[in-house]
Computed example of a mutant assay.
Amino acid sequence: MVLHTIENDPEYINLQAEMVKMQQWIKDSNKRLLVIFEGRDAAGKGGAIMRFIRFLNPRYYRVVALAKPTESEAGQWYFQRYIDKLPNAGEIVFFDRSWYNRAVVEPVMNFCTEDQYNLFLQQVTQLERMLVEDGIIIIKFWFSIDINEQKKRLEERKSNPLIQWKLSTVDMQAQLKWDDFTRYKELMFAKTGTKTCPWIVVKGNNKDNARKEAMRYVLENIDYSPKGLTGVRLKANTDIVSVLGI
């Protein structure tokens, strides 16, 4: 029933048609696009990615959702395993969580040391600047929900057998450590939101609105051609999407 509703929503269909045109332009012009999806647990990152890729050509995009580092990866330069997943020419890569694990989740959960955290903050903006200078288009989304909405979604994960696989040890701490997550999130915005790679904050309590406006933001900011032939609105609603950069 949910899929039926989505596929009969003309706004979704038109936005996804524009996504297909954008992907074709990226392929034909050998561009590289990296879209990073971050946010609190249950903020809607995975669902948003599913809307983005619904009709894309699977040959020219990848969704990257890395697991916990292996013992070998833990001994590498922190960014190394992410660098290996960056887009090739003509490709879109969607990061379902990213190197920004070290900015919020890891320090909150004591998965990294203070020195590792501080080194990350020093290096990440330099890395992103180099990637952009090399021609990679980077868009960084943060999906934002309030504490009550998160609680509702986490309870659904516990009770719904179709999505119980989404529950993790971090999920179980999300509500208890809400204020800690907030503190590190704000530090991340302040330290890593730049003119080159700003944070795009999406109000996510309403899933459909969040997904559509995130799609619009990408389409609005990529100069693909032909663009806008569906007639769907491509300018993101600034009441839902805001840009944080320094």
Rank of each mutant, 00 (worst) to 15 (best):
L3E: 14
L3I: 03
H4M: 07
D9M: 05
A17R: 14
V20M: 09
M22A: 08
M22K: 02
W25N: 06
K27L: 12
D28V: 06
D28P: 13
S29I: 06
R32K: 15
I36C: 12
F37C: 14
E38Y: 07
G39Y: 07
G47K: 00
A48R: 03
I49M: 02
M50E: 15
R51Y: 02
F55D: 11
F55M: 04
L56R: 10
Y61F: 15
V63S: 08
A65G: 07
A65E: 09
L66Y: 10
L66M: 10
A67Q: 12
K68Q: 12
P69D: 00
T70S: 11
T70R: 04
A74L: 06
A74P: 01
G75D: 01
Q76P: 03
Y82V: 04
I83R: 04
L86E: 01
G90H: 00
F94N: 02
R97D: 00
S98D: 05
W99I: 07
Y100W: 04
A103Q: 08
A103H: 07
V105P: 11
P107I: 01
F111V: 00
C112W: 03
E114M: 13
Q116K: 03
L119Y: 05
F120V: 04
L121M: 08
Q122V: 03
T125M: 01
Q126S: 08
L127F: 13
E133H: 13
I139D: 06
K140C: 13
K140V: 10
F141G: 10
F141H: 06
D146T: 14
D146E: 11
R153F: 13
E156V: 15
P161I: 04
V170T: 12
D171P: 07
D171F: 06
M172S: 14
Q173T: 10
A174L: 04
Q175E: 12
Q175T: 11
L176N: 13
W178V: 01
W178Q: 05
F181L: 06
K185C: 09
L187Q: 14
L187K: 15
M188N: 08
K191V: 00
K191L: 11
K195I: 06
K195Y: 01
T196K: 08
P198F: 02
P198T: 01
W199K: 01
A210V: 06
K212Y: 13
E213A: 13
M215R: 00
N221A: 09
D223Q: 15
Y224D: 02
Y224I: 06
L229H: 10
T230K: 05
V232W: 01
V232D: 05
R233M: 08
L234R: 00
L234S: 06
K235D: 05
I240M: 00
L244F: 12
I246L: 11
